[in-house]
């Protein structure tokens, strides 16, 4: 019950109901009365049959950009980060704690 599931709005009906499709292909009727101006194509989070949040386009774009920059950064700084991780691992072995 208490599980927020992201999905995509495929249809908005006049009676406050929106049809939302999830990643596994299941579509359900949801209560869309909590969100202003919901449109087909919007990404939303559904919780117990009601749309609790519309995922912000701006935030999703920033998020995607951050991830690609992050991956690019990893490529550049990979060796440096690996050195840091190696040194941590060596310390663990030296300490025989199995933990940091």
């Amino acid at each position: 019950m208490c599980l927020g599931i992201p999905g995509r709005v495929v249809e908005v009906r006049g009676d406050g109901i929106a049809i939302v499709e999830f990643s596994d292909g299941v579509s359900i009727e949801t209560d869309a009365n909590t969100i202003e101006g919901i449109r087909p194509g919007d990404y939303v989070i559904v919780h117990a049959g009601i749309i609790i949040a519309k995922l912000s386009d701006e935030q999703l774009e920033t998020w995607a950009k951050d991830i690609s920059e992050f991956i690019a950064g990893l490529e550049e700084k990979g060796e440096e980060i690996l050195d840091m991780l190696r040194s941590l691992e060596e310390e663990n072995v030296a300490g025989k704690s199995g933990k940091d």
């Binding site: 949801t30 209560d31 117990a48 049959g49």
Partner: peptide, 27 residues
């Protein structure tokens, strides 16, 4: 799964019913 589903079911079958509404601020 939802109160909406319960409402649809009640409309179809009529009678007397109660919905147990548990949950935090999200529900």
């Amino acid at each position: 799964y939802s109160l909406l589903e319960a409402i649809k079911h009640h409309r179809l079958h009529g009678g007397e019913s109660v919905f147990l509404a548990v949950g935090f601020e999200t529900t």
